[in-house]
């Protein structure tokens, strides 16, 4: 494995972790809004109990990815920074509003509804815009004017890929978060909330398949090089589909504890997460050797070897030091039945 390949692998692992964690986070914000009005519904309580401690940790991943990108691949910074100025800025604005209002909603009873709706809606817009990095990096949407690279807004707005990717991002946020929250509710023994989120997941599963197919169709027409690479990794895609089926199917298995309920939410979450990881890994591999097609490749963007070595070392040491912290956090909020079941 070359250093550059090692670097892109690490970067892509961060992206995948963020994709799953953020999808759950953004989707959960939407559900908090969706079920806000219904009194005596435990769904909102469940969502808030999960969201309150977790959004900050998820947010650090945004920074982690940006930092990993410009430090591993400074050669890609100029192009990406320039063409992503507008979509990137929009995401930042929305992120600021969403995070602030998410917290404010707990502090101000009077305007709780307004704050929750704003953070819910902005939370869905963020993945829809953020995901546009992918079609932009696939090529065809960057124009060169007087030697300067610029995002071609006309092409962006008229490309089917734009809409297919945004659609997929939103649907996967909702699907993943519904699955995750059903498991979370199940763990807390909240039957009512469990039923609600299982039902949402049942509805969204097929929509997700539709979204994924629409991407394949759009890419086939607009980014042939990428489609060809995807085809070469067909096995992985089929494997990913298989895990999706297992995950979706798990919702119909008999419940382990309650005969009145259906589904094995833990199995569903895990195999769907595996499906996401497989699909993203396939996507990442198909993208090589380009970072931004056709202008920046892995090698042309790569950092100085000395810098890479220092970065790699400090990543390893950093994560070793941090692991106990993550474990403690997990124990406190995701496993501790005292926290999950509190009134």
């Amino acid at each position: 494995m070359t250093d550059a390949l090692l670097a892109i692998t690490m970067l892509w692992i961060f992206v995948m972790i963020y994709a799953v964690a953020a999808a759950i986070d953004f989707g959960a914000g939407f559900w908090a809004m969706f079920y806000m009005k219904r009194k005596r519904n435990r769904a909102t309580t469940m969502v808030n109990r999960f969201l309150s401690p977790s959004w900050e940790v998820t947010n650090v991943f945004v920074v982690l990815i940006v930092v990993a990108l410009f430090s591993f691949f400074p050669g890609a910074t100029f192009t990406l920074g320039t063409v992503l100025l507008i979509p990137g800025s929009l995401v930042l604005l929305l992120l600021l509003v969403r995070s602030a209002f998410l917290v404010f909603a707990h502090s101000v009873q009077k305007y709780k509804a307004l704050l929750t709706v704003t953070s819910g809606v902005t939370g869905l817009l963020i993945p829809a815009i953020l995901v546009l990095v992918l079609p932009i990096a696939q090529g065809g949407l960057i124009e060169v004017v007087e030697g300067l690279e610029r995002l071609d807004f006309r092409a962006l707005l008229t490309s089917t890929r734009t809409y297919a990717f945004s659609f997929l991002a939103v649907v996967s946020s909702l699907y993943l978060s519904a699955l995750f929250l059903s498991d979370y509710a199940n763990e807390a023994g909240e039957k009512e909330a469990y039923r609600i989120f299982r039902r949402n997941a049942l509805f969204l599963g097929p929509v997700l398949v539709l979204a994924a197919l629409s991407i394949v169709g759009a890419v086939r027409r607009e980014a042939e090089w990428f489609y060809a690479n995807l085809e070469a990794n067909g096995i992985l895609l089929i494997l990913s589909l298989l895990f999706f089926v297992i995950g979706y199917g798990a919702l119909f298995l008999p419940h382990t504890k309650e005969s009145s309920l259906l589904g094995r939410p833990r199995l569903a979450v895990i195999s769907t997460a595996v499906q996401f990881l497989l699909a993203s890994a396939t996507y990442g591999m198909a993208h090589l050797p380009y970072l931004v097609y056709p202008v920046v490749t892995l090698e042309s963007g790569f950092t100085h070897p000395n810098t890479f070595r220092a970065l790699f070392l400090s990543f390893i040491i950093g994560f070793l030091i941090l692991t106990p912290g993550f474990v403690y956090f997990w124990k406190m909020f995701l496993k501790d039945t005292g926290y999950l079941k509190q009134e």
């Binding site: 920074v63 940006v66 930092v67």
Partner: peptide
Amino acid sequence: PSGTIAGVQLS
């Protein structure tokens, strides 16, 4: 989030 903006705006 404002720090996140600062960090991303640098790039």
